[in-house]
Design a protein around this nucleic acid. Structure first.
Lengths: 133, 133, 133, 133
DNA sequence: TTTT
DNA sequence: TTTT
């Protein structure tokens, strides 16, 4: 009924821009979010939270984000499941972002945002059935 | 660095109160959170989000919540992992709640909140190493 | 850069549906939000927070909300100012809602949502310059 | 019943550390939060939102924040009122912060956090009756 | 595995 | 009264 998430953290890798078979842009990345009270004297602790963006936002994220950038994400928790090749049901939890703020400036990727309607061979991974709209 | 979640949904079952070996109360339940735009004409869709509460809040939740109750939860996303019995690393995503609001009144469970320092045989499941504090 | 508010409280009065001169619907109400730690043994304390909704959401709120209903609001803090008739600058803080959840069912107001393009004499109060879009 | 705010913005001035008569530290500052969709071609628009922090957090903010720093604030909306010297009731809306994140590193103010129990002459402005705890 |  |  209400499902709202706000995260601030850093990208663990460069974001990955892909396209669904029908040409919808989707960008995925993982945010490392440091925990509030890290264990005394121990190593740094963080949660690694997968984030998914769609359409125009996906292209903007692919262009302006990169590994290590401090980033704020607003969205909702999405829980999906699928059957793996051993017939076992696997549950995946991701944050579907609808607002992303770049908190550190970044060299603009001159390689644009790609063309969502051109099959560049990266559209195989995400079925259209995953679309949240 | 910042990790905040706010959910409103209904419990899919009665909450489960347990104790760690050292006697710390922990209550777990799942919230069914209806998605905003359900597919046109299709069946109802929801995310099923596991919620964990600790200590005093755990006991209060065990006493006042039950299956179907509309509930608001504030907390943070926690991602933990463990190795299953086939040696595979399993990732679990939960919301660690620090604030729970009961949006529908509920008959108080007269069976109190239990005694966190008494081993009632339900303390086997959650190792103290899971404690977030 | 990021501005997000989530409130759960009760309406202090029935909501007021109005129209700007150009026919845009706007509904205003105040939420009484109980404070977390009320003074020991003292009277109930609450914050009274003004909420503004626009367009379709304004009409839905006018139809389904009424005094006393438990309601969740998502939105952003808006600070505006104007000069009063004594030439003094007055600052007004409101929450502009983009998502409202009715947490208690309510008799549907059979008197519909009104016609946003018909001047029913209630459009005098809010200048179009207040529009947040 | 639930009252949660998350802001990201920049301080309009250096923060002001003060002490109540009983020696409780309080730091106030204003965040300039840029609006999402600024009017087309017009000037930049922002909300100027007053933030209040108490005790240890107040001292940390006074030490590590300064004008222009990008800052994330978590807290709740607080509405208080008082009678001005013309006998008119004035309403003040502030965000009481319980979590502040410094998103840009800052030269540490070597002038420490002050001594909350020493009257340095700055404790006149905030009555203890304003304390939110 | 799921709630109204 | 306002920040980059």
């Amino acid at each position: 009924m209400l499902n709202r998430v706000i995260l601030i953290g850093r990208l663990t890798r460069d974001p990955e821009l892909q396209y669904t078979p029908s040409g919808v842009a989707v960008t995925k990345f993982t945010l490392a979010v440091d925990r509030p009270f890290t264990s005394q004297g121990g190593e740094r602790e963080a949660d690694f939270i997968p984030v998914v963006t769609w359409r125009q936002l996906a292209e903007t994220c692919a262009n302006y984000l990169s590994k290590g950038r401090l980033t704020a994400v607003e969205g909702r928790i999405n829980v999906r499941n699928y059957e793996n090749n051993e017939g076992k049901r696997i549950y995946v939890t991701e944050v579907i972002a609808d607002n992303v703020r770049f908190l550190e400036s970044n060299r603009t990727n001159s390689n644009g945002g790609g063309d969502p309607f051109h099959d560049d061979g990266k559209s195989i991974d995400i079925p259209d059935s995953d679309l949240p709209f």
